[in-house]
Computed example of a mutant assay.
Amino acid sequence: MQPQPLVLCAIESAARVYQDRPVVFFMKGFRDVDLEDNEKHTRYFPTLSSRENIYIFPLVMDEILKGTPLHSWYNKSNPEKERYWIHTLADSCRLALIWKYGGLYMDTDIITLRPVPCKNFLAGQHSKYSSNGIFGFSSNHNFTWACMESFVQNYDGGVWGSQGPTLFTRILKQLCDLPDFEDIKDISCENISFLHPRRFYPIGYGGWTQFYEVWDTFPTFNDSYAVHLWNYMNQKERRTMVPGSNTLVDHLYKNHCPSTYKAIQRNESLYL
């Protein structure tokens, strides 16, 4: 019930950029509440409560996966024997949600800068390798259905990412012979746009500490729609945004999630 400040920043930044679309955040803490009472849940998060297009929904896996190939897999699974169960659940529900309802999925360590102009797209993490941390499809798209089928048929819970980036990459390569990225050009694969890594990963995994360094001149990220902050490493190294530090993450918060930034700056509670 107390998501990290980066999560609140991610939600706020998305809501500011996509003002004409609902931005939905799913939380396990609301699993027992009335499903029709969702609109009021933003009151628990003061920095989000003023944004009318943000909705907090309970994460009810059985409901989300119902009607998909993932439902029977979920019911037969034994979480105690799964090494990466939380990651696998996250991989499964994002596929089911986008297949059912369409739209854009984003991990909560992604700060949105500007709208993604493509409806059906995958994000390249590097050449010939797709991320599943951000993607978008129309409802009932054949790619998301093929991913769910392959998820079950080729399930390997002992390998991290097997049902995530590796799965997306495998299905994409079945559709197209992917070339290497050139310059900052995206790749078209049938009716799917495979977007250049700079669109969402302008700072790669190996350079993640740059977000917490002081910059004389901040990058414009003019070629990016959003910025992925590699939260696994942030948590592992206990790095946080410090207001006024003049670091890159300080700059991103200040400009793209100002309500969250100001609350942290004033040492106000982020939670009701």
Rank of each mutant, 00 (worst) to 15 (best):
D37L: 09
F121E: 01
I264T: 02
A10M: 04
N75D: 06
H126I: 12
S269M: 04
V159E: 08
L252N: 03
L70V: 07
L104R: 09
Y44W: 14
F168V: 07
Y201G: 05
T240H: 13
L172R: 02
P69Y: 00
D91M: 04
T260N: 06
E149L: 08
Y205D: 14
V7C: 11
C118M: 15
F30S: 08
K128W: 02
V159Y: 02
I171C: 01
W145A: 09
M27E: 14
Y74L: 11
T88N: 14
L89I: 14
C93T: 10
R43Q: 14
K236R: 13
F45W: 05
A10G: 08
P5R: 00
C93H: 10
D107N: 11
L270R: 02
S92I: 04
L167H: 03
Y74M: 08
I192H: 01
P5T: 00
Q19K: 13
A226L: 12
W99F: 07
Y271E: 03
V242R: 02
H71F: 05
D186M: 04
V242E: 14
T260F: 06
Y84F: 14
F181Q: 09
I203V: 09
L172I: 08
E82N: 10
Q19V: 10
I111Y: 02
C176W: 02
N154R: 15
C93R: 07
K81T: 12
K119L: 12
E182D: 13
H251I: 03
C147Y: 00
I264K: 00
L167W: 00
S50A: 14
L65R: 06
P243A: 00
F135W: 01
Q235C: 11
E182Q: 15
T166S: 13
W85F: 11
T260H: 01
T209P: 07
L70A: 04
F218L: 12
S245Q: 02
F121G: 03
L272F: 12
I86D: 14
